[in-house]
Write a protein that binds this DNA or RNA. Structure first.
Lengths: 110, 110
DNA sequence: AAAACATTTAACCAAATGGTTGACAGCTTT
DNA sequence: AAAGCTGTCAACCATTTGGTTAAATGTTTT
């Protein structure tokens, strides 16, 4: 399923809006893992973790490869790039606000 | 309501996972607007836009100020900084993948 | 070929999401 | 004080989400 740019941002940001899924990405940043290994530290069922993986997969944040009876999962960070670029557009606004504050404080001391 | 770091990321990423809300942020990047001005370009009701604003506000991505009978809304980009930092942790992974690809392609030509 | 293991899928459930309409509340104008 | 704005809130609805358990699928071992 090919997604529009907006739809891809939708799915990436949605995937990131859950602490379980962010935690999974952190673990995968260390190394690739099987589904079972990913699920173990979580209190929920394996099926629930499997669903989270599907969400991450449809956002193209992970990729799976079947190796024997194991499904091995690895991080695919490329999709995050668009998200970061989207946010980067706004970075000037928080810097601006800081600059304005600094100017205000400088003016205040005179 | 004070949120944990994870909860704040939850609410920011959730707020960004909707095209209407991202569009609202874009408009506010140009200048502050009243709720009515924000709603006009959208096909949905004013109440629906009001709900979207509430989501953005609870993610601290916007701030409101009452001015007479108007509610003036402005961008508050600072919350995006955490989100960007969270993503930045992964930037090395997409660069790494690119590097690996380049190395692979170089090796291939020899 | 049967048993055991790794994972997904299906059916279900409660809660959250994104929209609607209509009533309400706060200013401003008359 | 009544009418007319601007915007929110409440009640409702359909859909999606995030979880569960049980059944199904595919692979390996016995």
């Amino acid at each position: 399923m090919v997604k529009s740019s907006a739809a891809r941002l939708d799915s990436v940001f949605h995937a990131l809006a859950d602490p379980t899924r962010r935690q999974i990405l952190r673990v995968l940043a260390t190394s690739e893992r099987t589904v079972g290994e990913i699920a173990k530290p979580h209190k929920m069922s394996l099926a629930a973790v499997s669903k989270h993986l599907k969400v991450l997969e449809s956002a193209e944040l992970i990729a799976r490869e079947r190796r024997g009876s194991f499904h091995i999962v690895r991080l695919q960070a490329r999709s995050l790039k668009q998200a970061e670029e989207w946010i980067a557009f706004y970075s000037r606004f928080w810097n601006e606000q800081i600059d304005n504050l600094e100017r205000y404080l400088e003016g205040d001391t005179e």
